[in-house]
Amino acid sequence: MNAVTKILIVDDHPLVRDGIQTMLKDEPSFQIVGSSKTAGEALDFLESEEPDIILLDISLPDMDGLQLCEKIRMKNKYSKIIGLTSTNEAGIITGLLQRGGNGYVLKNMERSELLESIRTVLKNKVYLSAAANDKVLEQFQSGKPNDNSIVLTRREKEILLLLADGLKGPQIAEKLFLSPLTVETHRKNLLRKFNAHSVQLLLKIARNNGLL
């Protein structure tokens, strides 16, 4: 790829903007075409320009960076967006990717890492810095398989069985040595979890799902 890569930096911190510019100054193929202090400035800039890369800080004074990413993505499908942050939280990383981000780099990066991230996303690949990569993996590996099945708590299982036996709230409370209020909450929770408006329907769904 010989053409010049046009880069927009969005960060409210002047030192950080300087730092990034310094890291990129020796790369003739990378050209910084703009730097915005706020989301508003960035959006204005993007009205007329279409950079290849947007380096986006997610903590901006006027708008949340994740929202800005989503907003940019609605109009601009072309530019590759790389999140540039100091946080390493799985929710934020996946949140950015869900909103159209292409890469995620932590601010305490090496120069080489920044360059690699830009080159990677230009090839239509996702780039995550090593630490972010570990976080996302953690999220996928620890979570139970997401098969949308309803998980019942121990008490809910007990109460479901007793409801199936035709017992009423106060009777269940007595049987399980719980307060009727507690049982009522569990009952309401069960209805909500199964999206049922009546106990009959709840029991029917539970049976169909092999829970009874």
Binding site: L15, V16, G19, K25, D26, N108, M109, E110, R111
Partner: peptide
């Protein structure tokens, strides 16, 4: 941000 920037400079310096 400050620490990150110092690191950016160090990294560039080393380069």
């Amino acid at each position: 941000g400050l620490f990150s920037t110092v690191k950016m400079y160090f990294s560039t310096l080393q380069h």
